[in-house]
């Protein structure tokens, strides 16, 4: 039976671990460093080293390894497609041939590297989201973006939008699940027919969902206004962001680790450079 209950997209899990207490700016910077590192060093062998990070993260944040790995589930299909395409369309030294399909040694390297890179990308991002409350995340982002704000971009409004969007994800899943079930109980069939028929069968779910979201948005705007929110006005924070020594330590440690992996990749592994 279709149900959205089990989807976890790296939702925030409240906690009080070392990672939870890091400044959101620190965590955002770290995540970006990691993503950059991933793109600079993605030899299959590098991933053995990258694996150390989720393990360490799991220890420090008290999140189980299964929970971390599960966040990669929604992209498994995407990863599979990427692997498949790279496997078959990378020219090089041929090792296997099935009809018109050719598998090359380079293809395998590229495919595995690409797949793992995508998977790690999602997992690293999820590690950030699981340990940073949406409010903190948007505050951190707002502060990091403040140089752009001086150019006239509404950074604080954008941050508030992000907070609310993240807050409403669980609610939206619940609503979608309810509407889906209601239409199934009225005989709606989402599983049979061709692509177009299937796409059309989702109209009875999407229309009510949009109506509901608009209604919600309007009510929420009124409620926010009644609590003295006015866009652009200066706001303070319950927990002001404080960059502590541990944040600097975290950034430096991670930077050293990433630099080491990249250096190792360039100097020792060298060899084939599939991604340019």
């Amino acid at each position: 039976m279709r149900s959205l209950n089990n989807i976890s997209l790296g939702q925030f899990i409240p906690g009080d671990s070392l990672i939870h207490r890091l400044d959101p700016r620190c965590k955002i910077v770290c995540t970006f460093m990691l993503l950059a590192g991933l793109f600079m060093a993605s030899e299959p062998l590098d991933f053995v080293l990258w694996c150390a990070l989720p393990c360490l993260f799991s220890r420090l944040s008290g999140t189980s390894m299964t929970t971390i790995l599960k966040t990669g589930r929604p992209v498994v299909f995407l990863v599979a497609v990427t692997v498949f395409i790279n496997l078959l369309w990378t020219p090089g030294h041929e090792i296997l041939r099935i009809g018109p399909l050719r598998v090359t040694w380079e293809g395998i390297t590229v495919a595995v590297g690409m797949g793992l890179r995508l998977f790690f990308l999602v997992i690293f991002a999820a590690m950030l989201m699981m340990t940073t409350s949406p409010m903190d995340f948007s505050a951190g982002l707002e502060r990091l973006m403040s140089p752009i704000g001086r150019l006239g971009l509404p950074t604080s409004e954008m941050a508030m939008m992000m907070t609310i969007a993240l807050r409403f994800i669980p609610t939206l899943f619940e609503e979608t699940d309810r509407i889906l079930k209601a239409q199934i109980s009225r005989g709606a069939d989402f599983d049979s027919g061709g692509l177009i028929r299937r796409a059309r069968s989702f109209v009875p779910v999407l229309v009510p969902l949009f109506v509901l979201v608009f209604l919600r948005a309007e009510n929420l705007a009124t409620a926010m206004e009644s609590r003295c929110y006015s866009p652009g006005a200066p706001r303070t924070r319950l927990h002001p962001l404080r960059w502590a020594a541990r944040d600097s330590v975290a950034v430096i440690c991670l930077f050293s680790f990433i630099a080491a992996v990249v250096a190792l990749d360039r100097l020792v592994l060298g060899g084939v450079r599939p991604f340019r």
Binding site: Q183, S185, G187, V203, P204, L206, V207, P208, V211
Partner: peptide, 18 residues
């Protein structure tokens, strides 16, 4: 079998789409 049992959800008018 499902056709034999009609289910009316809470706030059923929220499922309108037509």
């Amino acid at each position: 079998l499902r056709r034999r049992v009609g289910l009316v959800f809470q706030y059923p008018e929220q499922q309108f789409f037509a």
